[in-house]
């Protein structure tokens, strides 16, 4: 299984992001449960990582010098699975087993069951600490690989995130790049109504991070930020990506209720049409 990866061709990346969204929607409808909104909001970012920025070998998932991706917002598992399948870590046909008994595609990612998953996540707030540890270990070994960690904006209400934010800055982890999927929503409503997290940028700056503020659906902006983050030395970087929850399917966009609800068969058909999948 060979896939064209590591391309900076924006049109190619946009097409891959579209494919990723199609797979997410299909697998969620098939499974009957799972997290739609937060998988779609980060689809462009994760596509840019797996198909442009990260040095990785889908057929050698434990390759020592690989860049690492930690999905701290583990409920976006369908997004990770779609990216891994399209990159060639496993056959696409496995995606239809999501959340089914015996499947390696657990409701939240399990590193013991699925190649390409670095660590099991699902309990929010823990991924950045793990990313820090990996970054420290890579630095000790003088391995040039980088670590990427995707967090939700609701997730940063967890205290451990800020413990880890301090640690990364203290140890000057410039081989680490965090990305926050700022879709403005969490489960019970808007983050601003549930527990105010703004000013997000000022917080990360105050914690000693270099920040990039981008439109998380503008592929060119994502790719540029990922490139620029690599040039920041003696500081960790965070990409604050403004996104729309449910992005790509008009009737899911910015709807709090589509956090954990999957498309019906009818909705899937409409959604695929919107994504230009009709007739395919």
């Amino acid at each position: 299984m060979t896939t064209l990866i590591n391309s900076r061709d924006i049109d190619f990346l946009k097409e891959q992001a579209r494919n990723v969204r199609v797979e997410i929607l299909k697998m969620l409808t098939e499974s009957g449960s799972g997290h739609t909104g937060g998988s779609l909001s980060a689809a462009d970012i994760v596509t840019a990582l797996y198909f442009y920025k990260m040095r990785h070998r889908p057929l050698e998932p434990k390759w020592k010098e690989r860049d690492r991706f930690i999905l701290s917002k583990g409920h976006a598992a369908p997004l990770l699975y779609a990216a891994l399948a399209l990159a060639g870590y496993f056959d696409k046909s496995l995606l239809s087993s999501l959340r089914k008994i015996g499947s390696p595609l657990q409701g939240h990612p399990s590193s013991k069951l699925l190649q390409g998953v670095e660590v099991s996540t699902g309990s929010l707030g823990q991924g950045l600490s793990v990313a820090n540890g990996i970054a420290l270990g890579l630095r000790l070994d003088r391995t040039p690989a980088r670590v990427f960690c995707l967090l939700g904006d609701g997730e940063i209400q967890e205290g451990q995130v800020w413990e880890a934010a301090m640690t990364a800055a203290h140890y000057m982890l410039d081989n680490l790049c965090a990305i926050i999927d700022i879709n403005g929503l969490q489960i019970d409503g808007r983050c601003s109504d549930i527990m105010k997290i703004e000013p997000i940028a000022a917080k990360w700056i105050a914690f000693g991070w270099h920040i990039f503020e981008i439109d998380g659906h503008n592929m060119e902006a994502i790719v540029n930020a990922l490139d620029d983050a690599e040039k920041i030395k003696r500081k960790p970087s965070v990409i604050l990506a403004k996104t729309i929850k449910g992005k790509g399917v008009s009737f899911f966009e910015d709807k709090v209720e589509y956090h954990g609800i999957v498309p019906t068969k009818e909705e899937l058909e409409l959604a695929l049409k919107e994504l230009g999948e009709n007739g395919k």
Binding site: R68, G125, Q126, S129, V130, G133, T143, A164
Partner: peptide, 14 residues
């Protein structure tokens, strides 16, 4: 909590 997670990450690099 951060210490335990960081230890986990270090173990992932051998």
């Amino acid at each position: 909590q951060d210490m335990v997670g960081t230890a986990g990450g270090l173990s992932l690099t051998g």
